[in-house]
Amino acid sequence: MIEQAMIKVPVALRKRLDAAPDAPLLIATFGLLLLMILVFSFTAENFFSLSVLRNILTQTSIYIILGVGLTIVLTVGEIDISMGSIIGLAATVLGMTVITWGYPIGVGLLATFIVGVFCGFMNGFLTAVVRVPSIIVTLGTLTFFRGLAYLLGGSTVMVEFPPFLVWIGSGSLVGIPVPIWIAFIAVLWGYLFLKHTRIGQHLTAVGGNGEAARLAGINTRICKIIAFLIMGVMSALATIIIVARMDASQSVMGKGIELQVLAAVVLGGTSLFGGRGVILGSLLGALILSILQTGLLLSGVVHFWQLIAVGGLLIAVVAVRISREPAEGKT
């Protein structure tokens, strides 16, 4: 009797796991997150306080939103390293419309999204239609968008945004900061979109086997353009939160952010080779990075050592994952 029960449980569990292939990965990533929280609750003072938690989540919301976009781009088998420059350009445009030219905030937000869509379309068009490898395209647009931002905004800092924008940055809704709400909606949307809609299914197929997807009648070019458009829109969303939180905009904003976002997404288990996007993993990955950095800071570790910890963790996690999944690691 007891023996039977002991066998039955794992079988039932196994069936559950079979039905959700991403589950083991998510559980492992979540375990890492818990472990980190546990360690820091001993080493860092006040780590468990509500204000620290709120701070971490609010800070991370930007990375989570960008992570959703990048996960979708990686799923379709491409990469985007230009998001930091999109943020710089969008922040500059937002600042100029609202502060320099004095338009209402609604126009400013609209302009921000237009910039995001324009940049995303440019990346997508060059990748999908002109067929330049996306790492090259976004390497070029990384320079180009930033150049445009400098050209428009110079190095001036634009401040004193209208109250609505400030509310987005530091206001709360039902006791939860607005950026967290936005990040939550982005993750929920990204998850449903990628796993449960027809277009999400097509994006995964294009990243998994572009030729098979094409032969099945899927328009691979449009799928790729859609992924880059989503990245552009997410960049615009992140821009609004960044500007709102600092109550300032500047052309240099977002510089170097792509590395942190890429690290978060990869930590979360999304494949660099396409065909597998784990939105919830990217959420966990972004949280792990933030908690690691904040935890080390609160434990009194110098900033420079935090860099080493982040880089080391990234390589270690991927190395362990590849050693456990030899099929994925073989090239």
């Binding site: 292939p21 027809r198 299914q201 097509h202 995964t204 197929a205 998994g208 086997n209 030729e211 098979a212 997807a213 032969l215 099945a216 009648g217 899927i218 065909g275 597998r276």
Partner: peptide, 20 residues
Amino acid sequence: SGLVEVMDAPSNLFLGREKI
């Protein structure tokens, strides 16, 4: 080259013609 190897059987069966 007709199947997406990283996707499951139902996804492949309905590839490009998913049930809505």
